[in-house]
Amino acid sequence: MERVAWVPDDVDEGLPSAARLYDYLLGGGHNFAADRELAAKFLKAQPNARNIARENRAFLRRSVLFMIESGVRQFLDLGSGIPTVGNVHEIAQKADPDAHVVYVDYEEVAVAHSKLLLENNDRATIVQADLTVPESILEHPDTRALLDFDRPIGVLTAGVFHFVSPAKEPKRIVAAYRDAVAPGSYLAISQFTADFMPEEMAGIVEVMKNSRDPMFPRSYDEILDLFEGCDVVEPGVVATPLWRPESVTAASDEPTRAGIYAGVGRKR
């Protein structure tokens, strides 16, 4: 019965996906044998992958809490993936039960499981769409029903833009979301880079090359450029463990081993 509930009839279990890979690295159970096989190769290329996934998830949590403290009560989570412990709506609605969240993903299992999780929550929903087509999300009736674009929105892109190829013009895509939200909105970005561990990153790119979701790491300057039109808040674009850690000891001894840059910007 569980399989029927979270596995759509038309999903190809033999084709691994980034959402299910991430779920596996975080210790989740919504993944298939093909995803676990890909994860084994991923871990061989980058043995620190599980910790990288946890650090990225922790950044997502801290960025949401920062936005809540800054007065934001609505969130658009792009490439939200398969729900695991510590989802955006859980974090935001614990702080304010009236917070609204729109999740977005195109992966079938992520969408199916999100629908199950949110079926009794009228302040959160999942939109099945490709984040590289902003208008399909920004004009979606479910998005418009839950989010007020005249008020600040927290746009979250945690661990997702490294799946957007240069050919799709990531800066243009980010700009479309930035332009659609009100001044005072926030943009959170985290993504893989080769600046820290070039050999390991090259191995990850090779592993993912023939998957459903090839990867495109970016440099510090390329990621900073995505924040055009926003004021990047302190401490700037940094390794994930260094972005507003909850304590001195919470930051890793070797933060660059996290392999991912993270930052948050406030729309002017």
Rank of each mutant, 00 (worst) to 15 (best):
Ile153Cys: 14
Gly154Val: 11
Leu156Lys: 08
Val160Thr: 14
Phe161Ile: 15
Phe163Arg: 08
Phe163Thr: 05
Lys168Asn: 15
Glu169Gln: 13
Glu169Met: 08
Arg172Asn: 07
Ile173Gly: 11
Ile173Ser: 09
Ile173Lys: 06
Tyr177Lys: 07
Tyr177Ser: 03
Arg178Gly: 11
Arg178Thr: 15
Asp179Ala: 06
Pro183Cys: 12
Gly184Ala: 09
Gly184Lys: 09
Gly184His: 06
Ser185Ala: 08
Tyr186Thr: 01
Tyr186Met: 13
Leu187Asn: 04
Ala188Tyr: 12
Ile189Arg: 05
Ile189Ser: 04
Gln191Tyr: 02
Thr193Val: 08
Thr193Cys: 01
Thr193Ala: 05
Asp195Ala: 02
Asp195His: 00
Met197His: 14
Glu199Gln: 14
Glu200Thr: 12
Ala202Thr: 10
Gly203Cys: 07
Ile204Met: 15
Val205Met: 13
Glu206Asn: 12
Val207Leu: 00
Val207Ala: 01
Met208Leu: 02
Met208Val: 02
Lys209Thr: 07
Asn210Arg: 11
Asn210Asp: 07
Arg212Asn: 09
Met215Tyr: 05
Phe216Leu: 09
Pro217Val: 03
Arg218His: 02
Arg218Lys: 05
Asp221His: 03
Asp221Phe: 10
Asp221Arg: 07
Glu222Cys: 08
Leu224Cys: 14
Asp225Cys: 04
Asp225Phe: 02
Phe227Leu: 09
Phe227Val: 04
Phe227Glu: 08
Glu228Met: 04
Gly229Thr: 08
Cys230Met: 13
Asp231Arg: 14
Val233Ala: 10
Pro235Asp: 11
Val237Trp: 02
Val237Glu: 01
Val237Leu: 15
Ala239Gly: 01
Pro241Gly: 10
Pro241Arg: 01
Trp243Thr: 02
